[in-house]
Design a protein around this nucleic acid. Structure first.
Lengths: 262, 262
DNA sequence: AAAAGCGTTCCATATTGCGAAACATTTTTT
DNA sequence: AAAAAATGTTTCGCAATATGGAACGCTTTT
C-alpha cells in the first residue's frame, strides 16, 4: 500500500540523512539497521547523496559521513524562521480584525526585508506584494522600528555597515548628532512611523523583541486619509499585544522543540 | 540521459530544500523557477516533504517554508565533523607510517567517544573496533589529553558533570587536591598516557586544539612491550605534527566553505 | 575449515514517479 | 466589465526507474 502520495525515495533519503546525523560516522549496516531499508537500497541512496555532495565516503573504508553541505538545507534556519511560523497567523488575525494589511520583516545586512504580508487578504487594495522587498532603515516605519529599539552595539554595527556601502543613500549619516536626534524622536514616539501624502498610505511598525534582541519587526499600513492620533493609539496597542503574543508562543515552541529533541 | 545511478527524486528534493533555504518563504512558482522543475513535480515533492515534516504550508495561502525539523539533518554538524573529515586521512597516514593504530575521539558529556580508528589498517592485531566506544576521562590516555589541556572553566564543568552522575566511578573526584595533582602530572608529561601490562597495549594521546579550544583528541596505541621513552618521544612528535596539520587544513577548509557560501 | 557478516554488483520486474493537459482561482491587463 | 495572464491543483496513461532478492567477493569471527 503506497501510503498516499508520498514519494518514497525522498522519504527514504531523508530518513537516511536523519539517521546519519545521529552518529558522525555510519556504515551501510548501521543505516540498514537504523532505517530498516534493504542494504542495496541504502547503498544506492548513499551514492545519490554523495553525487549531490551531501555525503562523503571514507576513501578506503566504507564509512560515510554528512558533509558541511547539509547546512545548505538548514543554515537559514533560526529564530527568524520560528518568528514566521508563529507570526504569520497572528498577522492574518490582525488583518481580519482591522482590515488593514500587516507585514513582518527582519533585518538583513543593512535593510529590512519583508518576509510576509497580508496585503492579499486586506480588503483595501494597495500596490502589489511587498514580500522579499527591501526597505531602507531610515525613512521607513519598519526601519525606524529597528533602529529605534535595538541595542547600542548593534546600532553601531548597522551604522558602520551603512557607511561602508558604496552608494550613500542617507545623507543623514554624515552627522552623528542628526542620527541621535532622529532615533530619539522614534523612541519618544514609541514606534516607527512614516506618514504618506494624500492618496498614499501611512505605515507604523514596532519591533518584536525576545531576550532584549530584536528578531523582527511588524508593521501595519493604512490609507493616509484614515490615519489620526486616535487610530494610531488603537493600532499601536494592537501591534504591541500581538508582538507579545508572538514572542510568547515562539518561546514556548522553541522550548518544546528543544525538549523533545532529546 | 540519467546521469548514472543517481536517484532523481532525491536529487530533486534536495535542490528544492536548498532553494527553500535561500528565502524563508517560497511559492511553487518560485521553486519552479529556481530549480527548473515542472510545477506539478514541485507540488508533489512539497507534499512529500510536508508529510515527512520538513516543510510547512501556510494555511490559506500557498506559501511554503522549512520547519525546524531540517535541523535534524544537520544539527550534529559542527567543528567535530570537520575534524573527522580532515582527521581521518591523517590518522591513516600515521598508521601507514608507524603501523600502530591511531584513533580520534571527541568529548561527549563527560566521556571521550572514539569517532574513528585505524585499527583495521594496523598490521598489529588488537581487539575489535573501538568506534563509538566511550572512554572514561580519568584513567585513559585520551581522557587525560582532554582534562590536562582544556580551559579551566570547561574543566570545572566537566568535573561537575562527573560529580552529578549517579554512579561514581572515579573515587579521585572526592579530593580536589588529588585532581589537581593528577592533572598537573599530565601537563608536566605533555600528553595523556596509559601504560598497559605485559601483553596489553599502551596508549598515548594529545589534544587537537583550535582557537584555544579542544575540538578532539588523537591517540596512538602500541604494544606495551614495544613502548619506551625513545619511541614515546618519537611518536609524541609525530602526533603533535599531525594535530597541527589537522588544525591547519581544518581552518583552511572552514574559511573556504564560509567564503564560498556567499 | 566453516560460518557469519560486510559491502557491492546484477537484473528482471512492476512499481512509481512523471509531466502534458485540463481545471479552478486569483491577479493583472485591456 | 471583460479578457488575458498567471498561479495552484488534480488527473491519468505511460515509460522510466527505483526496487530488493540473489549472488559474489571479501573480511572477520567461530
Amino acid at each position: 500500500m503506497p501510503s498516499s502520495d508520498v514519494i518514497e525515495p525522498i522519504a527514504r533519503a531523508l530518513s537516511i540523512m536523519s539517521a546519519m546525523n545521529q552518529h558522525r560516522l555510519s556504515t551501510i549496516s548501521d543505516l540498514h539497521r537504523a532505517t530498516g531499508l534493504p542494504k542495496p537500497t541504502v547503498h544506492r541512496i548513499l551514492a545519490t547523496l554523495i553525487s549531490c555532495g551531501y555525503v562523503a565516503k571514507d576513501i578506503d573504508r566504507s564509512v560515510y559521513m554528512l558533509t558541511e553541505q547539509v547546512l545548505s538545507l538548514s543554515s537559514g534556519y533560526g529564530k527568524e524562521a520560528w518568528l514566521l511560523q508563529v507570526g504569520t497567523p497572528v498577522a492574518r488575525r490582525i488583518t481580519r480584525e482591522v482590515k488593514w494589511p500587516v507585514a513582518i520583516g527582519i533585518l538583513d545586512y543593512n535593510t529590512i526585508v519583508v518576509q510576509y504580508s497580508t496585503r492579499p487578504y486586506s480588503e483595501f487594495v494597495m500596490q502589489g506584494s511587498t514580500v522579499n522587498k527591501r526597505f531602507n532603515l531610515f525613512s521607513t516605519a519598519m526601519g525606524q522600528a529597528y533602529l529605534g529599539f535595538c541595542e547600542e552595539t548593534q546600532l553601531q554595527n548597522i551604522l558602520q555597515a551603512l557607511r561602508d556601502q558604496e552608494v550613500q543613500e542617507d545623507c543623514i549619516l554624515e552627522s552623528d548628532s542628526k542620527i541621535k536626534r532622529y532615533i530619539a524622536a522614534v523612541q519618544d514616539r514609541g514606534y516607527g512611523l512614516r506618514v504618506g501624502n494624500r492618496g498614499e498610505s501611512t505605515h507604523m511598525a514596532i519591533p518584536i523583541k525576545s531576550d532584549h534582541q530584536i528578531i523582527g519587526v511588524i508593521g501595519l499600513s493604512i490609507f493616509s486619509s484614515c490615519f489620526n492620533d486616535k487610530v494610531a493609539k488603537e493600532y499601536l496597542a494592537l501591534l504591541r499585544k500581538s508582538a507579545g503574543e508572538i514572542v510568547d508562543s515562539m518561546d514556548k515552541m522553541i522550548a518544546l522543540a528543544e525538549h523533545s529533541a532529546t
